[in-house]
Simulated assay, not measured.
Amino acid sequence: MTTRAAPAPSPDTRRYLLPTSRGEFAVVDVPAAPGTEPRGVALLLPGFTGSKEDFTLLHGPLAARGYRSVAVDGRGQYESDGPEDDETAYAQRELARDVLAQAEALGTPVHLVGHSLGGQIARAAVLADHSPFRSLTLMASGPAEISVSQQQRVKLLRDALAVMSMAQVWGVIQAMGPPEEVGGPARGIGGREHLRRRWLGTKPAQLLATGRQLCTEPDRVAELAAVPLPFHVLSGTHDDTWPVALLDRMALRLNARRTVVEGAEHSPNVDQPLPTARALADFWDAVAG
């Protein structure tokens, strides 16, 4: 994929620390475009090694459809603080509680979107309490643990973090070439310097804990299917982290809307942002209808 700079932000774009009952979280908050009818609010959760900037290319198209979109760095991700060494702070149940607090702080029921690891955290939040949410979209996020090949790459990263600094590991990642799940999905947004800053800003304990989660996550689809929310499963046409056929079957189990974005792989939000934003807004419009 060719590197491209992020588009200039909307004049109405706000970057700030969102205060919640569980601390402050760095967000990018883009309102519905002037002149549009406000249709709702979306809370966007990034994946493993990701950040709120992964959704940069979605904000404008969503705003044009009347949706305010709020992308957030999770605890210990990039510009959101968290402990350096305490992995228990990043247990999935703790990250799910953070999401519930973020939704509460926004003050209105939200459409929840989770990319990759963010999808599994979003699922845990919905299973804990679905009342703050109007819908759930799982973007390139599967029913259980990641593929064996990606588990091997995550294990390599976790082994490296046990003996090397974040700066040293960054150098190794650049030398090896980032895999889909261990390189960050927004490799085309903001350039290499942004990716370096994001990596160095992320807490090692967060990567260790969430990497373990990706490799051990149980199948909770039956649990989720019992929740009275509209579901949407969105992916590209190819995905090495969770095979697309597996995502197809998960959508059937959830009785979910299913979108496959042509020309996209593990990060439709980066690979094909316009059709991805259109699919999200179409789903949310249908929910409202």
Results as ranks from 00 to 15, higher is better:
Leu246Gly: 13
Thr108Leu: 00
Leu280Asp: 05
Leu234His: 09
Ala5Thr: 12
Arg253Glu: 13
Pro83Gly: 02
His238Thr: 15
Pro34Asp: 10
Arg14Ile: 03
Gln213His: 14
Ala33Lys: 14
Thr259Glu: 01
Arg187Ile: 06
Ala279His: 03
Leu234Arg: 04
Arg15Met: 13
His238Gly: 12
Gly66Met: 11
Gly50Leu: 04
Ala225Ile: 04
Glu181Phe: 13
Leu247Trp: 05
Gly142Asn: 09
Leu18Glu: 12
Pro143Thr: 07
Ala288Tyr: 02
Gly47Arg: 00
Leu45His: 08
His232Pro: 00
Pro179Gln: 06
Asp81His: 05
Ala91His: 07
Glu265Met: 13
Thr20Pro: 09
Gly263Lys: 09
Arg68Thr: 04
Val227Met: 10
Phe55Thr: 10
Ser131Asp: 12
Gly236Thr: 05
Gly82Asp: 03
Gly47Trp: 02
Gly191Val: 01
Gln213Ala: 15
Asp98Glu: 11
Leu214Cys: 07
Arg196Leu: 10
Ala64Asn: 14
Pro243Asn: 05
Asp219Arg: 06
Thr237His: 09
Asp129Gly: 09
Ser149Thr: 14
Trp242Phe: 15
Ala225Leu: 09
Trp170Tyr: 11
Ala89Lys: 07
Leu229Val: 08
Val172Thr: 10
Gly107Glu: 14
Arg212Lys: 12
Gly184Ala: 08
Ala5Ile: 03
Leu100Asp: 05
Val169Arg: 11
Val260Ala: 14
Asp282Val: 01
Pro61Ala: 06
Thr2Val: 13
Phe283Gly: 02
Thr237Asp: 11
Pro273His: 09
Leu246Met: 13
Leu229Phe: 10
Ile121Cys: 01
Pro179Ile: 06
Phe283Arg: 02
Gln168Thr: 15
Val41Trp: 04
Ala8Phe: 00
Val163Thr: 13
Asp85Ile: 13
Arg68Val: 06
Gln152Trp: 14
Ala288Met: 07
Leu58Thr: 05
His238Arg: 15
His130Leu: 04
Gly35Ala: 10
Cys215Asn: 15
Ser235Gly: 14
Glu94Asp: 08
Ala264Trp: 04
Val30Trp: 06
Pro273Arg: 00
Arg278Glu: 15
Arg257Gln: 14
Ala144Ser: 14
Ala122Leu: 04
Gly50Tyr: 03
His111Pro: 00
Leu246Thr: 15
Arg14Trp: 09
Asp81Met: 09
Pro178Leu: 08
Gly171Ala: 00
Gly50Glu: 07
Arg65Gly: 02
Gly201Val: 02
Thr216Ala: 14
Val221Met: 07
Ala42Glu: 05
Arg220Thr: 13
Ala124Gly: 10
Glu265Pro: 00
Pro34Asn: 07
Asp239Lys: 09
Ala33Gln: 14
His111Glu: 00
Ile189Tyr: 15
Ala125Val: 01
Pro46Ala: 11
Val148Cys: 02
Leu136Cys: 04
Ala89Gln: 02
Ala125Lys: 02
Ser141Ala: 14
Ala8His: 05
Arg134Ile: 00
Leu274Gln: 12
Pro83Ser: 09
Asp86Lys: 07
Ser116Cys: 06
Pro9Leu: 12
Ala205Ser: 08
Leu95His: 08
Ala167Val: 13
Pro243Ser: 06
Asp129Ser: 08
Pro19Ala: 15
Leu161Pro: 04
Leu138Glu: 00
Tyr78His: 14
